[in-house]
Design a protein around this nucleic acid. Structure first.
Lengths: 166, 166
DNA sequence: GCAATTAGAACCGGATCGGTTCCATTTCAA
DNA sequence: TTGAAATGGAACCGATCCGGTTCTAATTGC
């Protein structure tokens, strides 16, 4: 199973929530409460997303985070790359990697590059706007998360959007 | 980094070697020697591939493994699925998974399914024949592996085709 | 019957990753 | 000016997963 990291998983949840603010900033604590992602985790993810320039941050009292671009201009590929690093099935395709003994001859490189490109394009084809648009207003993330948290159907700290692989 | 498991990595190397035999069987030990993949690992992978019916096996003395189908009819997706399980970024998209609290409402499911399908199609678009075809005869896997093994440029047990991520 | 070979399962150590904690820095407001 | 609220950044820890090994059983040819 090729699996998405939880970081990216949570990141998409958080960004989806943020997308509904249309550029208005939100504090990390508010985001954590709304998405039911653990606050510490939320902070970590927001910092990474800010460093990748998907978010802009405002420090100090009354600070917070806001999308750096329109949701239409942020793709799933952007998010995964910000949180998990470059999208590639193998480091073989990474030009910076040089410790592969077969480097100059490796016959599979071209094919792997094809594969990696195809995967990257698949992920770059979905925007944050599309992910967020699928949420009907009546089932918006925040109230839903609260309902689940209160009913206890979901273990604390478990992923909101997706559960673990397998 | 979305990374390919070593199992799948090695599996592709081994199958690429096997593809050059055009249906003739090879013993696991021979394959291990030719590909420089550790013998025990090679055995494990061959067993998995046989169970997935990508290979046919002949037990007993002078036994071995051969491709169950033409290399043109085996895709990278087949190989990865045989060794790593279903190709999907999230179990959310797995109909059998029911422990997602948001199951019936999850707004992202449709999008994830799109993404997963795109990735699967990318991997299903490359055949073993294509992977094998990229090997010029002069640089065929076997002699190359031996050369590297003898020169010691590559640590014993390290991947032949690709090195670890990061 | 013995040697060669695959089938299958259990097992182990280490790397990775999800998650937490701590401290520094910035900003606002009383 | 001081303190509270917030982000920035790094280190740390424990559990899980995975690469890899080992052992035993079953099968087949000579």
């Amino acid at each position: 199973m090729i699996r998405l990291s939880r970081l990216a998983d949570y990141g998409i949840v958080i960004l989806t929530r943020l997308a509904r603010e249309r550029g208005r900033p939100m504090a990390a604590s508010t985001l954590a409460a709304d998405t039911a992602v653990a606050p510490a985790m939320t902070g970590k993810i927001l910092k990474l997303l800010a460093r990748a320039e998907l978010l802009v941050s405002q420090r100090g009292a009354h600070g917070g985070y806001a999308l750096a671009r329109a949701p239409e201009a942020i793709t799933v590929a952007d998010i995964i790359e910000a949180l998990d690093g470059p999208i590639a099935l193998t480091s073989c395709a990474d030009p910076a990697s040089t410790d592969c003994g077969l480097e100059p001859l490796c016959p599979a490189r071209a094919n792997w590059r094809r594969i990696n490109r195809a995967i990257r394009e698949a992920l770059a084809g979905i925007t944050l706007a599309e992910m967020a648009a699928a949420v009907p207003d009546a089932l918006a993330v925040a109230p839903e998360a609260e309902r689940l948290a209160s009913t206890g159907r979901r273990a604390a700290g478990s992923p909101l959007l997706l559960d673990g692989a397998r």
